[in-house]
């Protein structure tokens, strides 16, 4: 955790700000164009979920170093209603937004590590990591 920055999510504009922050960080860590796009899409999806379901929350971007490997960590947290059935939202074909969102399984695929902690009525924290290869 050498570097940390964050964006509060209130409006759709903040989603763009979170994307920009993530892309800059990914670029400076040394991720290629394709991985930058993947990381940014993951941030976008997580920020959108906050905007749509929790109303407000926060996206943190961290530079990660572990086991001689550099990586990027995204922490999306909110104090929204929480996810009733985490297993269900992780299933393919289940999209709460009903739109063309990649949803949680998409974010998991775009990143290397993925963790959801959610408590109903308390909020949700999602942590996702991608390692530089």
């Amino acid at each position: 955790m050498e570097c940390r920055s964050s964006v509060d999510i209130f409006t759709e504009w903040d989603i763009v700000a979170a994307r920009q922050l993530g892309r800059n960080e990914a670029k400076s860590i040394g991720f290629g164009t394709v991985d930058q796009a993947r990381i940014t899409t993951a941030i976008s999806e997580l920020a959108r979920n906050i905007y749509l379901y929790a109303g407000k929350g926060n996206i943190k971007i961290e530079r990660t170093y572990d086991n001689n490997q550099y990586g990027i960590t995204i922490i999306a947290s909110d104090e929204g209603p929480g996810i009733a059935d985490v297993r269900k939202v992780m299933n393919d074909g289940y999209s709460t937004s009903g739109g063309l969102g990649a949803g949680m399984p998409g974010v998991r695929r775009l990143m290397d590590e993925f963790n959801v902690q959610s408590e109903q009525g308390v909020g949700t924290t999602i942590t996702a990591v991608k390692w530089l290869r």
Partner: peptide, 22 residues
Amino acid sequence: SFDFLIEMMIHYGLALQEHQSL
């Protein structure tokens, strides 16, 4: 313009993976 195209393709990639997993 290629960077833009890559951005465009991310969801296609996800849709493909979802399809394979299904």
